[in-house]
Amino acid sequence: MQTFDLVRASDRPAAIAAGAESATAQQGASVRFLAGGTTLIDLMKLGVERPERVVDINRLGLDEIRKAENGDLFVGATARNSDLAHHPLVRADYAALSQAILAGASTQLRNAATTAGNLLQRTRCMYFRDLASACNKRKPGSGCPAIAGANRMLAILGTSNACIANNPSDMAVAMLAYDAVVHVQGVAGGRQIPLADFYVLPGQRPDIETMLAPGELITHVTLPPPKTGERSVYLKLRDRASYEFALVSTAVAVTLADGKIANARFALGGVGARPWRVRKAEDVLRGSAPDERAFRNAADTCLDGARPQSHNGFKIELAKRCIVHAFKQVTS
């Protein structure tokens, strides 16, 4: 680990001002915000993250979870994952979000990890985390050994010839299905970024992962009010029964009317360069009977354009089974 300064931000403007001193908010940032630290500190020990200054934002009052006046669910940036998963509002109205969080990591990690930290967690690609390996995400232009190497766990959607890393989050998958919006504060004021637009695809610059600019601090995330009668579920498939990142996962939310699908929203985890959601796949379900054929149709559409690597072609079929099964579960 490289020596760094640890400072505690006295208020939000101070944190933002400190963050703005970095030339980038992406890979290579010289200033990082510290919340739970479950990703950042690990990556600093590995030498993947080398901030000169770490700004502790744990005492900025960003840990609220409540119903906002407009009916949205307000989730503070530093609310702990455990608190969010077990919150009565979440358990009642956003079941897939609660399930997604509890399907990830371990109790100890969830007790420390935060909302914003979870959204910003980095890929688990083994080459990204190994300084001795080339990696275009760590060092653009250095190459991607994963393409010819160990890529069983990696992405099949949204990849480029420069990077096939996948986003590892469970929480973000559920939030994406629930149309979450990320609220950020920067030097020039605040802005709201739909989660669907928050992550950028790797292209030739896999080091750039989000829309965040230097100094922009995620203050909270909002989820629109639950749809009446909507049922949701999170299904995660992995090699072992707990404490492992997803091979494939899905968050599914469905509203039925007169025995037909009135509305469906779903997103995929484990398979995409970012949490994956395809509106067209949801559209094909609208108005159809909730049966295997319809679900399979939606799954096929969702996986359309998937690009398997040498060891993860099975993820296409596994993702489809995951989607179909989750829909069956939630509509039965």
């Binding site: 050994p145 010819a148 190497g149 160990a150």
Partner: peptide
């Protein structure tokens, strides 16, 4: 890893 010879999954995750 076939290219580098590194045990590339050398951690408990």
């Amino acid at each position: 890893d076939a290219a580098s010879g590194a045990p590339i999954n050398a951690n408990l995750a």
